[in-house]
Design a protein around this nucleic acid. Structure first.
Length: 139
RNA sequence: UCAGAUGGCUGGAUGACCGCUGCCACCAACGGAGAAAUCCGGUGGGAGAGGAAAGUCCGGGCUCCACAGGAUCAGGAUGCCGGGUAACGCCCGGCGGGGGUGACCCCAGGGAAAGUGCCGCAGAAAACAAACCGCCCAUACGCCCCACGGGACGUAUGCUGGUAAGGGUGAAAAGGUGCGGUAAGAGCGCACCGCCAGGCUGGUAACAGGCUGGGCAUGGUAAACCCCAUCCGGAGCAAGACCAUGUAGGGACACAUGCCGCGUGCGGCUGGUGCGAUCCUGCACUGAUGUCCGGGUAGGUCGCUUGAGGCGGCUGGCAACAGCCCGCACUAGAUGAAUGGUCAUCACCCUCUGCGUCAUGCAGGCGGGACACAGAACCCGGCUUACAGGCCAUCUGACAGC
RNA sequence: GCGGCGUUUGUGUAGUGGUAAGACCUUAGCCUUCCAAGCUAAAGACGCGGGUUCGAUUCCCGCACGCCGCU
């Protein structure tokens, strides 16, 4: 989709999961991780646990729509976002879903800042690209 | 009017804002790449899930295994008859059997006198028949009656006494019912029904009807093995093809490596390999098999959507269906996977309130509602399964009226 | 998307056209001062719906659920 880059493979999803940073709400789960690229990306997951193919498609489409409304204006360059559908994703009221995402994005960004500041003190200065991407993404 | 049967159709509507994927056109204007064609972005137009898209249960197309023919064996599938179809385990029509008052529905529905196996418990006996309780007969004994001829009852015996009516067991007991017959009985005899054999008539056939003959032999199970007939090679679009990248269109070891010709790596013969096995014929290839090591794994493009296609009409056919030209509209192609998200109104359903009726209802509400089942993934023909609500046609039964 | 396999007490397994067996677990009793072990007894299952058969957990068909594989 133009303007938004999607995570292309399973490896990207696994990296986001292993980074260990996630936020949970009734409507969905979000993960975030630095991707060491000059762009931000997003991926969607709807497992068989939440329902049949129709339900999964509906959940994924609602996630995409709420991403465009609430995540795209504030997304930071250099981050991968993974949005995971839960049982209520296809059924929850739209306004609640929007509120969930806005709250979770704020939480994730604060946690990312905390981790990067903490790593600067440690001898492993691995987060150089994420640090610079954060400055660019805020513009 | 009520209760049903069969077949078919439909599968929410409108509007606003914000978006997605192909296709076509434009690029006059704006941004990027390029010498340019052009490409990306952009602008405009139009298209964009189903009757089951599902389960993956059958049959095909298509692609690869290089391909083809024959014989035998193995394995699998199907199984009344006729037709339809590219084909089918599908569909249509008929036959036979079963169910229902009926419309109508259901049936893997070939072969058990080719063979083998099995038929638990119960029962005397479960398949070359046999004989538990009985019934009948003969002899002996006991006891009773007597009109002195004999008779009733009981017990025992019968070198294999006769019998299969009745009882009882079982899912099933060796044709059924009735009359005659007999010591008692029995297809022992007869009538009807059933069965078997052979003609006859009708039908393409399954089969039906009737005639003649035979006293009756042949229990069930083949969705047990099996026999008969017919059909079937394997894998599947993650098939497969091309391009790019790459230390490479891979390497090492073991086993095997025959003969002839010459130009010394090619040709021929033999051998080997090749669609479940073996064999034969043609054909193709020149290695095959095993073990170990190495490379790639976020590649791209094609395959990829117009087809045994749909709707209407005419002709043939009871129908499935076929033919014809005629007419019509045309027809999703995604690939972390588009075809949507939100809101409003209406329709629909549920619920509540009021009114009314034998009953179905009518009016209303800041009420509630994942608005049925369900999402294309190479494409068709079927089957099966899921499905809120609504509509149409034909037919059956009951009740009422004319 | 495509291909294959399997469902038996609470758990992991046998089994076969007629009675479903045994192990661990659970419950009760005995034994012991008590517990464990041991002994005795009991309870508890053929995924669902049809069909074939006298009779189906078994044979056949259709569903549901679960598992495995794919260059």
């Amino acid at each position: 989709m133009p303007g938004v880059t999607s995570i292309p493979s399973r490896a990207g999803f696994l990296r986001a999961r292993n980074y260990g940073l996630k936020a949970v709400s009734r409507g969905l789960v979000m993960q975030a991780a630095p991707n060491h690229l000059a762009d931000w990306r997003v991926g969607f997951t709807a497992s068989k646990k939440i329902g049949n193919a129709v339900t999964r498609n509906r959940a994924r489409r609602r996630l995409r729509a709420v991403m465009r409304e609430s995540l795209q204006p504030v997304a930071r360059l250099g981050l991968d976002y993974v949005m995971i559908a839960r049982y209520d994703t296809a059924r929850r009221e739209w306004q609640h879903l929007v509120d969930d995402v806005e709250k979770m994005v704020g939480y994730l960004h604060r946690q990312i800042d905390h981790r990067i500041d903490h790593q600067l003190d440690s001898p492993h200065g691995e987060s150089q690209s994420a640090r610079s991407a954060r400055k660019g993404g805020q513009a």
